[in-house]
Amino acid sequence: MIAISFDGVVKRFPGAARNAVDRVSLEIEEGELITVLGASGSGKTTLLKMVNRLFEPNEGTICLFGENIMDKDPVKLRRGIGYVIQQIGLFPHMTVRENIATIPRILKWDRARIGVRVDELLSLVNLDPDEFRERYPAQLSGGQQQRVGLARALAADPAVMLMDEPFGAIDAINRSNLQDELLAIHGKHKRTYLFVTHDVAEAFKLGNRVLVMDGGRVKQFDTPQRIVDDPADDFVRELLASSGGRHGQSARVGN
């Protein structure tokens, strides 16, 4: 089943010299973990934010599981999509529990079910529920905050997860741990992930396919192995060279 499809999608911001996203057409299968790799200004975040309609395309159509997203109420559409961003994004005046319970509460789950779900999610992201449930975001480290952000996005078990450089501000060791945990979570539940990053090593480690973007266009969209073996053009070749000697990691994704 096709989870996400872009067909001739164009996004222009008023006053911009060129299209932020320029005629992007591609399909993502259910259960894939796609990393979107590009420099700032490549259009990767814009592409992501069109999926949950924080931005709306000027041309083209985006479908989720065959349904045009423009036919749906944006607020309801977003409840079926998990969303994690780099800069905290946690509500600072709410505890970890209240943050994670945000969408379940809107969906009017009963108290007991929410409590069970919060603990389950905290365990899933390797935070001890008893220790962290009642803490405020300011009482957490950057890595812990990002884990709570991930748990909050997973709360209502969305079919699609959008992640916008979620580990960008995390130190290298924690970052590597978070990447491993994300792969484990993805492996367990097989939801469809769209993960934006500017880090080549991260994109190749996480993605079962990597979407390389530059100047609003798709440069190459393929498995890490095939991108390494057969870069589409000089841009992709230079990108690989710039990350230097990371190719070994792609072996993991070749399965």
Partner: peptide, 18 residues
């Protein structure tokens, strides 16, 4: 109010009044 926090709220499907 940090626009990132507001965007996170909107992006997860919180209605505008909430």
């Amino acid at each position: 109010v940090d626009p990132q926090i507001v965007e996170a709220a909107a992006g997860m499907g919180m209605p505008p009044l909430r």
